[in-house]
Amino acid sequence: MSSVKIRNLYKRYGKVEVLRDVNLDIHSGEFVVFVGPSGCGKSTLLRCISGLETVSEGTIEIDGRVVNDVAPSKRGIAMVFQSYALYPHMTVFKNMAYGLKLMGLPKETIAAKVREAAEKLQLTAYLDRLPKALSGGQRQRVAIGRAIVRDPKVFLFDEPLSNLDAALRVQMRIEISQLKEQLTSTTMIYVTHDQVEAMTMADRIVVLKDGVVQQVGSPMELYDHPQSLFVAGFIGSPKMNFLSGQFADPFKAHTVGIRAEHLDIAPADGAWSGRVIYSENLGSDSFVYVDVGAPEPIIVRQPGKAAHHAGDVVGLAPKVHELHRFDADGRPMMH
């Protein structure tokens, strides 16, 4: 069953079109990530679903009901904000109880629900503290707890990890994934600009650019079969190498794309050859930057320590099956 259904959605601020003809079906219990560069409209789309923004055209359905004009609190959603948006003058307990109190639930029910959520998030010891006495990760958990107690049908995350440092981000990513395992029937929509988060957490990824949905699919689908140059370039790290013109001609394509891990350094014969300008050692593997005469250097991933140094002349051999061919419009060509 479809939990969130978006049809022909447009959002305009005056003359500026922020979202254009968005159509999307998100299934119940699914974890969907909206990803794209900043200003692509992903947050606006999330805010339209939450009801914090009104839509200019089109419909949004949640659980089979059109919610265009329904107040945010009556859409059955909960939201975790980038800045956590904790109420600074309320304790952790009161923060989590606030929404329940507004629903008019009896005191005991509220206390029970808050305790249960606190248990789940290891916040029980902090219930009487003010947000300013908590660490970043704890604040994030309170924000999640505040959402959980509402028993939402749809759980919305707006870049929830971008205020955390790198180590904590990884830990919270795992915690959110575990949460998803626990709340099997809850739909989760997660907005991020970080494609690593998208790849690691999502059941399905929605890639947006300039207010238009570029591609929807599972992480591996997007990785293996990008439907456009943009998606090919956006998903995966390091960025996919693109070559066009004389470099693409042998493959009968306008542009070819090849990921760093799908290139081998061949001493003599290869599709392309060039001079190593720089090599990066990461320990487990290394990246070699090769100038083949194209506008940008080609990045090659090698296992272990880099065997090549600046100035070496090398040949590059792509794994042909992993080669992505694109036509002049940036559309993929069949193999």
Binding site: L52, P72, S73, A85, P88, Y98, G99, R146
Partner: peptide, 14 residues
């Protein structure tokens, strides 16, 4: 005052 706090409260039904 931070906008997200107001929005959070609106979602909470205030």
């Amino acid at each position: 005052l931070p906008r997200e706090i107001m929005e959070s409260a609106r979602i909470d039904g205030a």
